[in-house]
Design a protein around this nucleic acid. Structure first.
Lengths: 187, 187
DNA sequence: TGGCTCATGTAATCTGTTACATGATTCT
DNA sequence: AGAATCATGTAACAGATTACATGAGCCA
């Protein structure tokens, strides 16, 4: 009955803001949503087809700059579906930190490997943080629209945990380096 | 060639510390690893069977308190597989925060719904935090073993981000409440 | 006695990724 | 000219969850 497929809800949510093509939806996931959601073309395009067949979205094809595009709009039925989903409590948050997993078992490897995993994680985080900081700043300025407040809140979440990541990276790195110094082990 | 199936690596990692039954592996995931990994019986038991067939683990059945158990041990081949995996960089961390998703689209719902999602997230976080704090404290005391340092580092990670979650929950809650006051909207 | 936890397991299903294919346009 | 990006899409596969089944022991 109730549509629980998450990818559908994400797409409906994005379309509730503005019309988009499948390609744009993917891009949006890779930027605005990247710190709390992800999805591939292989899930987006089929989901759009299915939802159109079910009357949750409509499409119209057009050409822009010589490129063929298919833009999707949310229907009232789609809005109702999204609204129903928003009413229900979140079932759970699915977090799979491969980095943490490798660190947890790092006793089977070497300290330098552990340091490398942390450094890679740190680099990725540092790369993503400026985008979040900019988002928070620009959204703080425009308080016209309730939706903008919610965007800001999620961006604030991202900014906060990214900063927590970076703090942790520094602490963890120096603890492992201390340990290396004490044991004088090479690998 | 190289075994990339994550559930296999998690199990090998746990077995690298000590022998365990499938049931114990599941329990461990739900406690020690819960803030960065999860898995179900439906993935654990079949993985154990397959890995036994491939010589990565061995099993022995016994009875304890009248209960039949199957305990698994990691083999040298299993350790090699784990070690190979630890050498390779983490491909990516998969984070799916359903809570954030519902908040991002909360403009299509009501402020009270948004507050409810945050409150539920806060409650779950508050429930899990004491376990992490205790883990960090007890692991800080025993610095005998490199493996313990890595456990502590992951627990520290959990503690840090859980505290960041809670800070954010308070900020987000009061911002939404401010907004509600300004607009005097009921839902 | 009834309900919960311990303990193992399977089948159906879901959901999604990866890798590929296609072809046009824009950038260098 | 060649590489990268825009843009859509599919097929094969991977990986995991859910729901169920079974049965024993423990607690109130």
């Amino acid at each position: 009955m109730a549509n629980e497929k998450k990818i559908d809800q994400v797409i409906l949510g994005l379309l509730s803001h503005t019309d988009m093509t499948g390609y744009e939806i993917k891009k949006r996931m890779d930027t605005t949503l990247s710190y709390f959601w992800s999805g591939s073309y292989g899930s987006i395009y089929p989901a759009l087809k299915t939802m159109e067949a079910n009357g949750l979205v409509t499409s119209h094809s057009y050409s822009q700059n010589g490129r063929d595009k298919i833009s999707y709009s949310i229907t009232q039925s789609g809005r109702d579906t999204l609204s129903d989903w928003l009413k229900r409590p979140a079932t759970r948050d699915e977090l799979h930190y491969e980095t943490l997993l490798k660190l947890f078992f790092a006793g089977e490897g070497s300290p330098s490997q552990a340091l490398a995993h942390i450094a890679a994680f740190q680099a990725r985080t540092e790369e993503g943080l400026p985008y979040l900081t900019r988002s928070v700043e620009s959204l703080r300025a425009i308080q016209d629209n309730p939706a903008h407040m919610y965007y800001m809140l999620t961006a604030m979440f991202g900014e906060k945990i990214y900063n927590a990541y970076l703090e942790w990276c520094e602490e963890a790195t120096s603890m492992i380096q201390e340990y290396e110094k004490k044991t004088q082990n090479s690998d």
